Simulated scan of single mutants.
Amino acid sequence: MELPHSVSDGVATVVIRHPAKRNAMTAGMWRALPPLLDGLSADRAVRALVLTGEGDTFCAGADISTLRGSPGEAQELAVLAEEALAAFPKPTLAAVRGYCVGGGSQLAAACDLRFAEEGALFGVTPAKLGIVYPASSTRRLVALVGPATTKYLLFSGELIDADRALRTGLVDEVLPAGELGKRVAEFTRVLVSRSQLTQAAAKEFANGRTDRDAHWAAQARGSGDTAEGVAAFLERRQPRFTWSV
């Protein structure tokens, strides 16, 4: 199975594609994601990344048939892919239609932002399979929705709709049917127009890396982005930021 990807106007789009099983992730797909992200991270033309599913489903989880042989190995692959996505140094956004369940929720939670279409369904379902959800994934979920909602999702394995996901903080925006693609394109245009310096520092700080103030202060002094941003504001024009990851 493939993870098709493209780059256009500063935005990399990675597509989860496994239509026979609602875009469930196979072992090969989990393995393919970290090196793909490494390559996109190194591409200076990429300023933001969108993760989405093919068609009307984001990702229905892990392909259960791959769990029969070695469930521990399958989970390890999923965690490595999740951590690679979380570590991507540029803004990431999950664009969710339909089912976002199990491993799909792991991937969506590892993105910086999540936009969903009305009708999307979210669930974290290891309790249905007797699987211990990884500690790192649990902590990430707690950081997004708090301990009470995390327990609800993990204890029950029940699905929640997009409106409840929005209320709990699992998603950032919910769009009417047919409007998700337009809104994602609009918002990513905003992201690529902003300072990568600001974004990279903010991402580290928000993710708990609080020991790099001096590093980012030095980057700011040497970048010219601050001077450009102030000049552009005073001259009432769009800034031309040059610092890149």
Rank of each mutant, 00 (worst) to 15 (best):
W30Q: 08
A110Q: 07
W216N: 00
V192M: 04
A32L: 06
C100L: 02
A185L: 03
V132Y: 05
A143P: 03
R22M: 14
P239L: 03
S137A: 14
G10S: 11
A81V: 00
A84T: 04
T138L: 08
A127E: 15
F233W: 11
N207P: 03
G28V: 00
K203E: 09
R236W: 08
A86I: 04
S105G: 08
I64Y: 09
S136K: 08
M1N: 01
R22S: 12
A27K: 02
K128D: 15
Q106T: 10
K21V: 14
A95W: 00
F115L: 15
K203P: 00
M1G: 02
L129I: 13
S156Y: 07
K21W: 13
A120K: 14
D213M: 11
R183P: 01
S41W: 07
G39S: 15
L170D: 11
D112H: 07
G119V: 14
E235S: 13
S137Q: 11
L170Q: 06
R194F: 05
A32V: 02
C100A: 05
W243R: 05
T13A: 10
R17Q: 15
V124I: 15
L166Y: 09
A143C: 06
T168I: 15
A20R: 12
A81L: 01
P134A: 10
R212D: 09
K182M: 02
F88C: 05
L33A: 09
W30P: 00
S195H: 02
G53A: 03
A127G: 14
G10L: 09
P176I: 08
R17G: 09
L180Q: 03
S8V: 14
D9I: 11
G222D: 01
K21M: 10
L37T: 08
P176A: 11
S193W: 06
F233M: 10
E54H: 13
G104S: 07
V7K: 10
A108E: 03
P91N: 01
K182T: 10
V96F: 00
L113Q: 13
L107P: 15
T13N: 09
I131Y: 03
L33H: 04
R209D: 14
D38E: 15
S137R: 08
F58S: 08
L166Q: 13
G39C: 10
V192H: 02
E76Q: 04
G53D: 04
A95Q: 04
L197P: 01
C100D: 00
I64L: 15
T198C: 11
L175I: 12
L159D: 12
A177W: 01
G181C: 07
A148Y: 02
A24I: 12
A87W: 06
A220V: 09
R236H: 11
V50M: 06
A201Y: 11
E228H: 03
L159T: 14
T66V: 13
A110P: 10
E173M: 12
Q196K: 00
L80S: 11
E2V: 12
L40R: 01
R167C: 13
E204S: 06
P89H: 05
P239I: 05
A231H: 09
A108R: 05
T52P: 03
A202C: 11
F241H: 05
K182S: 07
A162F: 07
A135C: 03
A81I: 01
F241S: 01
P239F: 08
I131W: 05
K128S: 13
S223A: 04
D163N: 13
A32N: 05
D163F: 12
L77F: 01
A214L: 11
S193V: 07
A206I: 03
V145M: 00
T242Y: 03
